[in-house]
């Protein structure tokens, strides 16, 4: 009685031992081989870096964050690589965009940031996308007609962006952009980018912010067609910029970054 039992036991034990030998490589606990993390120009590398470092402000999928949506082929096509790289590396002075590169020990190195720009273009870009009116993306300080800007503002912006926020309203306006507090938090470049590329990802009231191609609304809420010209945008920015009561507030990082750039 005992002996056959023992034989069965031995057979079972042997089978288990052999099976585990064979299966050892497929067990779920086997740690994955350590591989170098994917570079940032690959889809996985880009997505990982983005969700760790950008998603907080630019939105989980590149849109619908409080900051400028990056999943915007038109915007990506308009901004050249070196400008994008500079913004990533050094941040943008006067705004809430921090620099991720530089000479700090904790900084992301330049090669990785270059790869990231490439990865972003691969993921979200589209080389054939062009700005609707071919208006240069970059703000150039220079002479612009702020008075013309004010006229344009009255004709095309003020119905959504009234100069004073009406009490309790929500359905018909999306809020003031002439608010002095707001203006001190955004750069002229931010204003220009918003005007040129619009903001169509956030479901704003009463309508999404159009790009420079329009259509707009006049002061009475009537549709106004016709794109803004490059100089129109300059003038609008000059007008808004002039409403700042004092120079643009520089966040604390700016000193370090400007120093950094000169190195």
């Amino acid at each position: 009685m005992i002996r056959p039992m023992m034989r069965v036991n031995t057979a079972v034990a042997l089978t288990i031992a052999l099976a585990s030998l064979a299966a050892c490589d497929q067990l779920p606990g086997k740690p994955a081989l350590r591989v170098a993390p994917p570079t940032l120009d690959t889809a996985a590398g880009f997505a990982g870096f983005y969700s760790e470092n950008c998603a907080g402000c630019h939105g989980a999928d590149g849109t619908q964050g409080p900051a400028r949506p990056m999943r915007d082929a038109v915007y990506l096509a308009a901004v050249p690589d070196d400008a994008m790289f500079n913004m990533l590396r050094n941040g943008i002075e006067g705004t809430r965009m921090p620099g991720f590169g530089g000479n700090r020990i904790t900084a992301v190195d330049d090669a990785a940031l270059t790869a990231f720009v490439k990865g972003m273009r691969t993921a979200w870009g589209n080389a054939s996308a062009t700005a609707p009116t071919n208006i240069a993306w970059a703000h150039q300080p220079g002479k612009a007609d702020a008075e013309h800007g004010r006229e344009l503002f009255d004709a095309r912006c003020v119905s959504c962006h009234p100069r004073t926020q009406p009490v309790g309203s929500s359905a018909t306006v999306s809020g003031s952009v002439t608010d002095p507090f707001y203006l001190r938090l955004v750069s002229d470049q931010h204003l220009r980018t918003s005007i040129v590329f619009g903001r169509n990802d956030l479901n704003s009231a009463p309508a999404n912010m159009p790009s420079a191609a329009g259509p707009f609304q006049d002061g009475n809420g009537q549709r106004v067609d016709g794109a803004l010209s490059s100089s129109d945008v300059d003038d609008l920015v000059a007008y808004l910029s002039g409403l700042r009561s004092s120079p643009l507030y520089a966040p604390p990082t700016s000193a370090a970054q400007s120093k950094d750039e000169t190195k």
């Binding site: 700090r104 020990i105 904790t106 604390p252 000193a255 370090a256 120093k259």
Partner: peptide, 10 residues
């Protein structure tokens, strides 16, 4: 070192 800055050093 830039005045006003705090940096990590090794």
């Amino acid at each position: 070192f830039v005045p006003g800055d705090t940096v990590l050093m090794k």
